[in-house]
Design a protein around this nucleic acid. Sequence first.
DNA 1: CCATATTAGTTTGAATATCAAACTATTCTG
DNA 2: CAGAATAGTTTGATATTCAAACTAATATGG
Lengths: 155, 155
Amino acid sequence: MNAISDEIKEDYNFISDSLVDIYDQIMRIEESEIKKSRFKDITAKELHLVHTIGLHDHKTTSEVARILRLSKGTLTANLNNLERKGYISRIINQRDRRIINLALTSKGRLLYRAHYAFHRKLVEQCLKGFDGSDIKKMKQALMNVEDFIGEVSGR
Amino acid sequence: MNAISDEIKEDYNFISDSLVDIYDQIMRIEESEIKKSRFKDITAKELHLVHTIGLHDHKTTSEVARILRLSKGTLTANLNNLERKGYISRIINQRDRRIINLALTSKGRLLYRAHYAFHRKLVEQCLKGFDGSDIKKMKQALMNVEDFIGEVSGR
DNA sequence: CCATATTAGTTTGAATATCAAACTATTCTG
DNA sequence: CAGAATAGTTTGATATTCAAACTAATATGG
């Protein structure tokens, strides 16, 4: 156990401990930022759902439920709220009228873009002063995590 | 708008999009991994609480509630469950008998260590092939995020 | 000292979120 | 075309959360 490996070990612990709490804090900040804007009636969970529908435009209810790992019943309840508040719309698929495709309304798209901009600001702050090769490393780290997730969850 | 800044922009978008979903997946995996072990009666939220109590040994109920941003009532309910399942114990502070200090039981410590090991495995996988200076960069990125969180939430 | 204020944690009651299973409407299939 | 399969909703039960009322213990200051 030499000095270098001890230092790396310590770095690993620092990174591990940091990661645990950061996400919770980000969720909380996202919600509180959004509540300062014109979108005061949106919770962090609803924001997450709006983000997912914006990212995966016109997907079906079942597909979105699978992506978010929510039961269909739970998603129906959430969609009712977001539809009532004017952020999403249900579009009956005319080829197969059992299917409902989900889309953002223009209000929903405004929220989506505001949220996306916040995320971008966070990433920019995070990578402040990093050069191209540093950024490549960050991408690599994220891809490694995705691989790990894929392996553990059996793909 | 030259080629390099376009590429960086794309990298930023990649990183931003990746981050959104990774945490949810990690939470889910943590819960499913823990359910494969001897700790089948633990949810992701309870795991988070055990982690916090393990990290901040013998803190008071109010302090833990503040750390996790839970109301005291909610924390009481969660503590009841974890105490019943044998993961934590409430220790009445003899200097001030209003105060309850929270600690892990030996079963709780086993769970804490298993969970911590999983996190370490994740970080190791994430930083696979990285050298000392790369790891420093990762630490810097995390500290930048923490700064950003601090600024936005007004410290 | 003691009456009052303060503090730590619990209980309570209401609101919300979630799930699985039953159900409805529609489409597919043999 | 009858029955199976599929997409989404409804329903009933359970769990989570919060704020406010409450209990017990300690601090304060007259």
